[in-house]
Amino acid sequence: MITTENLCVSYNGRTVLRDATIEAKPGSILGLVGPSGCGKSSFLAALNRLTEIIPGASVSGRIQFDGQDIDTAFPSSVELRRHIGMIFQKPNPFAMSIRRNLELPLREHGIHDRQHLGQICESVLRDVGLWDEVSTRLDQSALNLSGGQQQRLCIARAIAIKPQVLLMDEPCSSLDPMSAERVEQLIDSMRGQYTILIVTHNLAQARRLSDQITIFWTEDGVGRIIEQGDTETVFNETSNAIVDSYLTGRKG
Protein backbone atom coordinates (compact mmCIF):
# COMPACT_ATOMS: atom_id res chain seq x y z
CA MET A 1 0.00 0.00 0.00
CA ILE A 2 2.70 2.40 1.08
CA THR A 3 6.33 1.74 0.44
CA THR A 4 9.36 3.95 0.81
CA GLU A 5 12.78 3.57 -0.62
CA ASN A 6 15.84 5.27 0.81
CA LEU A 7 13.78 8.03 2.33
CA CYS A 8 15.90 10.76 3.87
CA VAL A 9 14.63 13.73 5.88
CA SER A 10 16.70 16.74 6.82
CA TYR A 11 16.08 20.01 8.59
CA ASN A 12 18.06 23.03 7.45
CA GLY A 13 20.58 20.76 5.80
CA ARG A 14 21.02 18.49 8.82
CA THR A 15 19.97 14.94 8.01
CA VAL A 16 17.94 13.38 10.80
CA LEU A 17 16.74 10.25 9.02
CA ARG A 18 18.59 8.31 6.36
CA ASP A 19 17.73 5.49 4.00
CA ALA A 20 14.42 4.48 5.46
CA THR A 21 12.94 1.69 3.38
CA ILE A 22 9.67 0.20 4.53
CA GLU A 23 6.64 -1.56 3.23
CA ALA A 24 3.21 -1.22 4.80
CA LYS A 25 0.83 -3.94 3.63
CA PRO A 26 -2.79 -3.05 2.84
CA GLY A 27 -5.06 -3.39 5.82
CA SER A 28 -2.30 -4.15 8.25
CA ILE A 29 -0.90 -2.21 11.17
CA LEU A 30 2.75 -1.30 10.98
CA GLY A 31 4.35 -0.29 14.26
CA LEU A 32 7.23 2.18 14.27
CA VAL A 33 9.30 2.24 17.43
CA GLY A 34 12.64 3.60 18.51
CA PRO A 35 14.20 5.97 20.98
CA SER A 36 13.31 9.62 21.11
CA GLY A 37 14.69 11.82 18.37
CA CYS A 38 15.41 9.08 15.88
CA GLY A 39 13.16 10.59 13.25
CA LYS A 40 9.88 8.68 13.52
CA SER A 41 7.72 11.76 13.45
CA SER A 42 9.78 13.19 10.63
CA PHE A 43 9.29 9.97 8.73
CA LEU A 44 5.51 10.13 9.11
CA ALA A 45 5.45 13.79 8.15
CA ALA A 46 7.32 12.96 4.96
CA LEU A 47 4.68 10.40 3.97
CA ASN A 48 1.81 12.89 3.74
CA ARG A 49 4.14 15.72 2.72
CA LEU A 50 3.45 17.59 5.90
CA THR A 51 7.16 18.39 5.75
CA GLU A 52 6.17 20.97 3.17
CA ILE A 53 4.78 23.21 5.86
CA ILE A 54 7.57 22.61 8.34
CA PRO A 55 10.12 25.40 7.84
CA GLY A 56 13.51 24.08 6.75
CA ALA A 57 12.44 20.50 6.18
CA SER A 58 13.39 18.64 3.03
CA VAL A 59 12.81 15.09 1.90
CA SER A 60 14.49 12.87 -0.64
CA GLY A 61 13.95 9.30 -1.72
CA ARG A 62 10.94 7.49 -3.07
CA ILE A 63 7.48 7.11 -1.64
CA GLN A 64 4.98 4.90 -3.43
CA PHE A 65 1.28 4.59 -2.90
CA ASP A 66 -0.34 1.49 -4.41
CA GLY A 67 2.75 0.96 -6.52
CA GLN A 68 2.71 4.49 -7.93
CA ASP A 69 5.02 7.33 -7.03
CA ILE A 70 3.04 9.70 -4.85
CA ASP A 71 4.08 12.60 -7.02
CA THR A 72 2.38 11.05 -10.03
CA ALA A 73 -0.42 9.35 -8.11
CA PHE A 74 -1.68 12.62 -6.67
CA PRO A 75 -1.77 15.95 -8.42
CA SER A 76 -1.39 17.92 -5.19
CA SER A 77 -0.52 17.55 -1.54
CA VAL A 78 -4.11 18.33 -0.71
CA GLU A 79 -5.26 15.36 -2.74
CA LEU A 80 -2.56 13.17 -1.23
CA ARG A 81 -3.57 14.07 2.30
CA ARG A 82 -7.13 13.12 1.50
CA HIS A 83 -5.92 9.58 1.01
CA ILE A 84 -3.36 9.53 3.78
CA GLY A 85 -4.80 10.81 7.04
CA MET A 86 -2.86 11.67 10.17
CA ILE A 87 -3.45 11.58 13.91
CA PHE A 88 -1.17 13.61 16.13
CA GLN A 89 0.26 12.95 19.54
CA LYS A 90 -1.66 15.80 21.10
CA PRO A 91 -5.34 15.80 20.18
CA ASN A 92 -5.85 18.84 17.98
CA PRO A 93 -9.53 19.51 17.47
CA PHE A 94 -10.25 22.96 16.09
CA ALA A 95 -11.76 25.50 18.44
CA MET A 96 -15.24 24.95 17.04
CA SER A 97 -18.22 22.77 17.74
CA ILE A 98 -17.91 19.01 17.47
CA ARG A 99 -20.11 19.06 14.41
CA ARG A 100 -18.07 21.77 12.67
CA ASN A 101 -14.91 19.82 13.37
CA LEU A 102 -16.29 16.90 11.41
CA GLU A 103 -18.04 18.88 8.72
CA LEU A 104 -15.30 21.32 7.83
CA PRO A 105 -13.01 18.83 6.07
CA LEU A 106 -16.02 17.15 4.46
CA ARG A 107 -17.29 20.40 3.02
CA GLU A 108 -13.79 21.09 1.89
CA HIS A 109 -13.95 17.87 -0.10
CA GLY A 110 -17.15 18.77 -1.79
CA ILE A 111 -19.94 17.38 0.40
CA HIS A 112 -22.45 20.10 1.14
CA ASP A 113 -25.69 18.20 1.45
CA ARG A 114 -26.94 18.67 5.04
CA GLN A 115 -28.43 15.24 5.36
CA HIS A 116 -25.44 13.49 3.91
CA LEU A 117 -23.13 15.40 6.23
CA GLY A 118 -25.26 14.41 9.21
CA GLN A 119 -25.15 10.76 8.20
CA ILE A 120 -21.39 10.75 7.84
CA CYS A 121 -20.95 12.51 11.20
CA GLU A 122 -23.09 9.99 12.95
CA SER A 123 -21.50 6.99 11.33
CA VAL A 124 -17.90 8.05 12.04
CA LEU A 125 -18.77 9.02 15.59
CA ARG A 126 -20.28 5.56 16.02
CA ASP A 127 -17.16 4.04 14.49
CA VAL A 128 -14.98 5.65 17.12
CA GLY A 129 -17.48 4.91 19.88
CA LEU A 130 -18.14 8.55 20.62
CA TRP A 131 -21.73 8.79 19.43
CA ASP A 132 -23.38 7.83 22.70
CA GLU A 133 -21.17 10.23 24.61
CA VAL A 134 -21.61 13.32 22.44
CA SER A 135 -24.76 12.90 20.36
CA THR A 136 -26.63 15.34 22.59
CA ARG A 137 -24.00 18.05 22.47
CA LEU A 138 -22.77 18.08 18.93
CA ASP A 139 -22.97 21.86 18.85
CA GLN A 140 -20.81 22.44 21.88
CA SER A 141 -17.15 23.27 21.58
CA ALA A 142 -14.91 20.30 20.90
CA LEU A 143 -12.43 21.74 23.38
CA ASN A 144 -14.78 20.81 26.24
CA LEU A 145 -14.29 17.11 25.57
CA SER A 146 -11.86 15.08 27.62
CA GLY A 147 -8.45 14.34 26.13
CA GLY A 148 -9.42 10.81 25.14
CA GLN A 149 -12.68 11.99 23.61
CA GLN A 150 -10.82 14.70 21.72
CA GLN A 151 -8.41 12.15 20.33
CA ARG A 152 -11.24 9.91 19.21
CA LEU A 153 -12.92 12.91 17.65
CA CYS A 154 -9.70 13.58 15.75
CA ILE A 155 -9.69 9.99 14.54
CA ALA A 156 -13.33 10.35 13.52
CA ARG A 157 -12.49 13.55 11.70
CA ALA A 158 -9.66 11.82 9.87
CA ILE A 159 -11.67 8.77 8.81
CA ALA A 160 -14.66 10.88 7.78
CA ILE A 161 -12.88 11.75 4.55
CA LYS A 162 -12.25 8.03 3.95
CA PRO A 163 -8.50 7.81 3.65
CA GLN A 164 -6.89 4.49 2.79
CA VAL A 165 -3.89 5.07 5.03
CA LEU A 166 -3.73 6.49 8.55
CA LEU A 167 -0.53 7.80 10.07
CA MET A 168 -0.61 7.91 13.84
CA ASP A 169 2.08 9.66 15.84
CA GLU A 170 1.93 8.39 19.42
CA PRO A 171 -1.86 8.72 19.48
CA CYS A 172 -2.18 7.43 23.05
CA SER A 173 0.75 9.00 24.77
CA SER A 174 -0.92 12.16 26.00
CA LEU A 175 -3.96 10.28 27.31
CA ASP A 176 -4.74 8.77 30.68
CA PRO A 177 -4.55 4.95 30.84
CA MET A 178 -8.30 4.45 30.48
CA SER A 179 -8.62 6.68 27.45
CA ALA A 180 -5.43 5.24 26.01
CA GLU A 181 -6.87 1.78 26.23
CA ARG A 182 -10.09 2.95 24.63
CA VAL A 183 -8.18 4.48 21.72
CA GLU A 184 -6.01 1.39 21.42
CA GLN A 185 -9.10 -0.80 21.11
CA LEU A 186 -10.40 1.54 18.48
CA ILE A 187 -7.21 1.27 16.47
CA ASP A 188 -7.29 -2.50 16.84
CA SER A 189 -10.84 -2.55 15.49
CA MET A 190 -9.75 -0.56 12.46
CA ARG A 191 -7.42 -3.32 11.33
CA GLY A 192 -8.32 -4.48 7.87
CA GLN A 193 -10.16 -1.33 6.88
CA TYR A 194 -7.20 1.01 6.85
CA THR A 195 -3.50 0.65 6.42
CA ILE A 196 -2.16 2.05 9.66
CA LEU A 197 1.33 3.24 10.48
CA ILE A 198 1.59 3.88 14.18
CA VAL A 199 4.46 5.37 16.15
CA THR A 200 4.50 4.44 19.80
CA HIS A 201 6.89 4.42 22.73
CA ASN A 202 4.89 1.73 24.42
CA LEU A 203 6.51 -1.51 23.32
CA ALA A 204 3.78 -3.64 24.83
CA GLN A 205 1.26 -1.67 22.86
CA ALA A 206 3.31 -2.03 19.70
CA ARG A 207 3.39 -5.75 20.27
CA ARG A 208 -0.35 -5.99 20.90
CA LEU A 209 -1.35 -3.84 17.95
CA SER A 210 1.06 -4.23 15.10
CA ASP A 211 1.32 -6.91 12.49
CA GLN A 212 4.72 -5.76 11.33
CA ILE A 213 7.21 -3.68 13.23
CA THR A 214 10.01 -1.36 12.21
CA ILE A 215 12.67 -0.33 14.66
CA PHE A 216 14.47 2.99 14.29
CA TRP A 217 17.77 3.81 15.92
CA THR A 218 20.02 6.85 16.09
CA GLU A 219 23.62 6.53 15.04
CA ASP A 220 25.79 9.64 15.11
CA GLY A 221 22.70 11.80 15.34
CA VAL A 222 21.14 10.30 12.24
CA GLY A 223 18.10 8.07 12.44
CA ARG A 224 18.12 4.76 10.61
CA ILE A 225 16.06 1.59 10.46
CA ILE A 226 17.89 -1.25 12.10
CA GLU A 227 15.30 -3.99 12.08
CA GLN A 228 11.94 -4.82 10.61
CA GLY A 229 9.66 -7.78 10.12
CA ASP A 230 6.62 -9.52 11.54
CA THR A 231 6.10 -8.31 15.06
CA GLU A 232 6.18 -11.65 16.82
CA THR A 233 9.21 -12.79 14.87
CA VAL A 234 11.13 -9.65 15.74
CA PHE A 235 10.16 -9.78 19.40
CA ASN A 236 11.01 -13.46 19.78
CA GLU A 237 13.98 -14.15 17.63
CA THR A 238 15.84 -11.04 16.56
CA SER A 239 19.47 -11.58 15.83
CA ASN A 240 20.36 -7.92 16.36
CA ALA A 241 21.85 -7.31 19.80
CA ILE A 242 20.79 -3.64 20.00
CA VAL A 243 17.24 -4.52 19.03
CA ASP A 244 17.15 -7.29 21.54
CA SER A 245 18.30 -5.11 24.40
CA TYR A 246 15.93 -2.30 23.31
CA LEU A 247 12.95 -4.62 23.14
CA THR A 248 13.71 -6.15 26.48
CA GLY A 249 14.03 -2.71 28.00
CA ARG A 250 17.76 -2.62 28.58
CA LYS A 251 18.48 0.18 26.16
CA GLY A 252 16.92 3.21 24.52
Binding site: P75, S76, V78, E79, H109, G110, I111, I161, K162
Partner: peptide, 16 residues
Protein backbone atom coordinates in the same frame (compact mmCIF):
# COMPACT_ATOMS: atom_id res chain seq x y z
CA UNK B 1 -15.20 9.28 -1.16
CA UNK B 2 -18.25 7.82 -2.76
CA UNK B 3 -18.57 10.58 -5.30
CA UNK B 4 -17.58 9.51 -8.77
CA UNK B 5 -14.35 10.56 -10.45
CA UNK B 6 -16.13 13.22 -12.47
CA UNK B 7 -17.37 15.17 -9.45
CA UNK B 8 -14.10 14.76 -7.60
CA UNK B 9 -12.41 16.17 -10.67
CA UNK B 10 -14.80 19.14 -10.59
CA UNK B 11 -14.08 19.73 -6.93
CA UNK B 12 -10.42 19.68 -7.66
CA UNK B 13 -10.75 22.24 -10.40
CA UNK B 14 -12.78 24.43 -8.09
CA UNK B 15 -10.15 24.08 -5.37
CA UNK B 16 -7.44 25.03 -7.77
Amino acid sequence: MDSGPATSRAIEVRHH
